[in-house]
Design a protein around this nucleic acid. Sequence first.
DNA 1: GATCGTCATGGAATCGATTACACGCGGCTT
DNA 2: AAGCCGCGTGTAATCGATTCCATGACGATC
Lengths: 359, 359
Amino acid sequence: MASIKDVAAEAGVSVATVSRVLNGHPSVSDEARTRVLAAVRALGYRPNAVARSLRTDETRTLGLVISDVMNPYFTELARSVEEEARALGYSVIIGNADERPELQDHHIRTLLDRRSDGLLLSPTDGGSPLMLDAARAGTPMVFVDRWIPGVDVPVVRADGRDAVRDLVAHLHGLGHRRLAIITGPAATTTGSERVAAFGEALEAFGIALPEAYIGQGDFQAESGRRATDAFLALPEPPEAVFAADNLMALGALDAIRARGMRVPDDIALAAFDDIPWFVHTDPPITAIAQPTGELGRAAVRALVDRIEGRPPQSVTLSARLVVRRSCGEPPDPAKEQRVSHPDELLRIEGIRKEGEFSG
Amino acid sequence: MASIKDVAAEAGVSVATVSRVLNGHPSVSDEARTRVLAAVRALGYRPNAVARSLRTDETRTLGLVISDVMNPYFTELARSVEEEARALGYSVIIGNADERPELQDHHIRTLLDRRSDGLLLSPTDGGSPLMLDAARAGTPMVFVDRWIPGVDVPVVRADGRDAVRDLVAHLHGLGHRRLAIITGPAATTTGSERVAAFGEALEAFGIALPEAYIGQGDFQAESGRRATDAFLALPEPPEAVFAADNLMALGALDAIRARGMRVPDDIALAAFDDIPWFVHTDPPITAIAQPTGELGRAAVRALVDRIEGRPPQSVTLSARLVVRRSCGEPPDPAKEQRVSHPDELLRIEGIRKEGEFSG
DNA sequence: GATCGTCATGGAATCGATTACACGCGGCTT
DNA sequence: AAGCCGCGTGTAATCGATTCCATGACGATC
């Protein structure tokens, strides 16, 4: 590959001049500029980003470590992150932690070694020493979706509290009283928050949430299946199951089918995280939709703010209930919702940013 | 961040010795080695991968440019690619081309600039000059899933010819005679091959494939919808629709539903690319499953072979028909298939590598 | 005891860029 | 006319690693 020296030789100038032309430095004569550009074209020269990074100490690369790429929610998040990053002149390296802390650490380590300018994390656990050290050492970092309490890192996430309350109201309105939840790992905020919100909502309706109705899952389909099996084996099984993510909902659907039962006739089902497929499942699944695309974009903006020396902002958007048929009694067909792009919800719901209310 | 100089100072040796210790060079005294390792630990030193790459001219990074991350087929491909790459000591940078040639070029360019050691491509089109130049210039490269004829680059893909024949036999057996296909862009091999295979299979059954039964799609859900709408508006609409990828099948399902028709009673539906969700749609969709994970792994192995100076091998695996209910007459329930991990198919079907037969 | 080989080590070049500094030149001010 | 400023340019230092080469110590060999 041609280097800047080759270009300089071809154009009959010094490497400094070539560099100045390439970086738009004003102090270059038109004469030199044209000669350099001609040489660049002639040699098909492209600057070596590795060398540039070494010198400037910036790679214009963002690291994104997500819990599970196969989960459509995170796929969409990754997609929007990449789009926004590209718009701001950054590339994204995606690490798939597969819900495994040691894999998460592996990715954080390589991203750090490769000198990513910043990290976008959705922690699978309570935070490894590696991650906490990096945060303390001043590595630009933003948590997205999940976060770790007590760490001074901006958080971009959706608040599902209201939507969960809406869901419980919906279930209650359909006559369901025995409501169960399949939760994620307690070490993740999304795991614990969703049960908490569910519990509070139930309480508001004077419904108890017995231990037996809390199934421990790990955000993977298989755990949804197991938890649902356990529910159905109970002397008094629940009338409705709320899965804290979409994959566990799929597993739950499997388990219900395996017993020859039908949704929603025999049992109601709802999920956190809406995805395009939920429109086409049998039956279409009622879900809580996050403004995924906007979350990804906001996270990138916060991280880039931090990297480029501007004060980064934590952002909380709100999630929203999308009623379909999996909890019973089809709603008025005119009101039935198709949400291929959950972002459309923003136009309906509006965006709430932290600090706009109380500060 | 501590650099190798700091470590050298802390350990009281030269940077050369530190480097030797870190790279396992034999000619280092135990005394020096322990001192260096102690210093490394004390300072929390991590080698700067950027500097190392500049010097050694290798980044241990692979670029993967895929057509559409939101397509579960490619998501799974990306996942298996990352896994195998990690096992071989490489990181993967994923670029999402979104079926747009100019985006594809953007990603190829940044990957080249960042000096990725090799590229894994699934071209959205017939091949841009940039891509062809890079191939000619000797950039290690492997095509996966889709490829470009006439370019000297190894190809890792699945052959769906037999499976398509099986599908046509299945449809024919169910009494369907008017069969239509929604194809991908003709510029992609997967676009044109699938129609070709379909056409040949029909011919074998003495069935014609009129122009009106070939819907032009672009591998996105929306195009599946449009093509299906056109089919249904025909004076004599098809009895079965075969979508050349999973997203277009979803679109087709939408279009059929929108007309108040039912699958499979009013029209049969099948898709290329099997995904876990197809088990849960209404009805479960008959599909042609590719050994996606194995494709990803084989592609990485071929690319790394090429990078490390071993002769790379083109690989062709075979796809396989998975019958569900979307074409009519439910098959014997005992035979109904659940394919969450299409890789399992390998155990059934076996793997065929090019060259094992004729060479 | 001179010579040689082996081993551990350090000095310095190198990868390809950016950029501080110095220099020469021309024009303007006083 | 001297001095100053600003512009365009080149030389060289620098980023953090790897690695070639030289050196000195030591042991073995003759």
